[in-house]
Design a protein around this nucleic acid. Structure first.
Lengths: 198, 198
DNA sequence: AGCGTCATGTAATGTGTTACATGATTCG
DNA sequence: CGAATCATGTAACACATTACATGACGCT
C-alpha cells in the first residue's frame, strides 16, 4: 500500500514508453523525436542523454554495449522489470485539468502507451477522463468568452472561440474512440461466448 | 538596418502583451494566468517576478509604486516606448514549423496581440503563415500514418489521425478567420471610397 | 482566533536549449 | 577529398516549479 509514485518528467515518460516498445540507443531515440510526430519533444542530445543516464541510474533501464570495434561504443537500452512497472504506474495516474490545459499532447502519448502496455481498458479510461475534464472545463471557457468586454476587440474572442472549438473536437474524438474500443471488446466477447473462436 | 532581434521567452512575450493592454501589478498578472484561458503559463511567482524584473532592467517597462501606506508597496508596471517597440518586433517574427509543432498556443497569443498592437494586416499575416506551415506539414504526417507498420497496433494510428484532424481544423480556422478579416477591410474601403463615411 | 486574499519576493531544484567536442564511416 | 551521417557526450545558460517567507486587512 504505497502512495502514488511521484510524476516523472514528460521526456522520461516518453523514453520509457519507446524503450518498452523495443530496445533502442540514444541516437535512435533522438531520431524518433526529430523525424516523427513526436517532435513535441526536444530531440537534443543535451536533454536525452542525461535523461537516459537518470533512467539507468534509477534501475529502470539497462544499457548493453554493442561494441562493433567502434571507439564510441553504441549503448542499446532495454527496460528492466522495474522500468516496466514504473511506466505502468505513471500511465495509471488520473488525467487532471492541468493535464488538459497544459499537456494535452502528453495525454495522447499516455493513451498510446497505455493501450500497448496496459490494454484496452486503461486506454479507454484515459480517453474518458480526458473527455470528462474537458467537458467540465468548457463552461468556464464559455463564461470567459461571454464576459469579455466589447472594448477588448475581436481578436481575443476569436482566439478563445477557436480554443473552445478545439477542446470540443478533442472531447468528441475521445468519446467516439472510447466507444469504438468498447464495442470491439463487446463484439469479441459475444463471439467468444457463442463459441465461434477456435 | 539591424538584424532580427533575438527571441524572448514565451512568458516575457505574454507579459509584454498584457502590459501593453493596460498597466498591471505582478499580482494582477499572476491572476490573469491562474484565472483565465491563458493558464498555459505558469502563474507562479517564481516565474513572473523575475521576468518582470528582467523587463524593467532592460528598459521595456517602468514600475510605479502605488504606496497606499502599505508596507509591501504595490508595483504597477507600464510599457515604455522601447517595450512597445520590442513587442512589435517580436510579433513581426515569421511563424515557423517549429512554432506550429511545439508552440501553437503561443502563435494564437501572437495573433491576438498583433491584432491589437499592429493592426489587422499583421494579424492576417500570422494566420496565413500559420495555415501555410500546417499545410506543408500535413503531408509529412499523412506519410507517417501510412508508413506505420500494422504490428504497431491501433493506438498510435488513432492518436496520429487525431493529430492530423486537429491540424486540419486549425488551418481551416486560420484561413476562414483571415478571409473574414480581409473582407471587413474591403468593405470598409468600399464604403469609404463611395463616400458614405463621415 | 483563524482563514483567505492581497502582494511581494527568494532559494533549491529540476529540466530544456544551444553550442561545442570527438571521431569513425559512407557517399558522391 | 569533403560532406553528411552515425554516435556519444559536456558546459553554459535560460527557464520553470515548488516551497517557503513576510505581513497587512477583512471576514466569520
Amino acid at each position: 500500500m504505497m502512495d502514488p509514485p511521484p510524476a516523472i518528467g514528460a521526456l522520461k515518460l516518453a523514453l520509457l514508453g519507446l524503450l518498452c516498445q523495443q530496445p533502442r540507443s540514444g541516437y535512435d531515440l533522438m531520431k524518433v523525436f526529430s523525424d516523427t510526430a513526436m517532435g513535441g519533444f526536444s530531440s537534443s542530445p543535451g536533454a536525452i542523454y542525461p535523461a537516459l543516464k537518470w533512467l539507468e541510474k534509477n534501475g529502470y533501464t539497462r544499457g548493453k554495449v554493442q561494441n562493433r570495434t567502434q571507439l564510441r561504443p553504441k549503448q542499446v537500452y532495454k527496460l528492466t522489470a522495474a522500468g516496466v512497472e514504473s511506466l505502468k504506474q505513471q500511465l495509471r495516474r488520473p488525467v487532471t485539468r492541468d493535464d488538459v490545459m497544459r499537456h494535452a499532447d502528453i495525454v495522447l502519448l499516455r493513451f498510446v502507451f497505455a493501450g500497448d502496455v496496459l490494454g484496452r481498458d486503461e486506454a479507454v479510461r484515459i480517453l474518458e477522463e480526458f473527455a470528462g475534464e474537458i467537458e467540465s472545463y468548457l463552461p468556464d471557457l464559455k463564461a470567459q468568452l461571454s464576459e469579455l468586454p466589447p472594448s477588448a476587440g475581436p481578436y481575443g474572442a476569436q482566439a478563445l472561440q477557436h480554443g473552445i472549438d478545439g477542446y470540443r473536437a478533442d472531447a468528441r474524438w475521445a468519446r467516439k474512440t472510447a466507444k469504438g474500443l468498447k464495442q470491439q471488446a463487446t463484439k469479441r466477447k459475444t463471439k467468444r461466448l457463442s463459441g465461434v473462436t477456435h
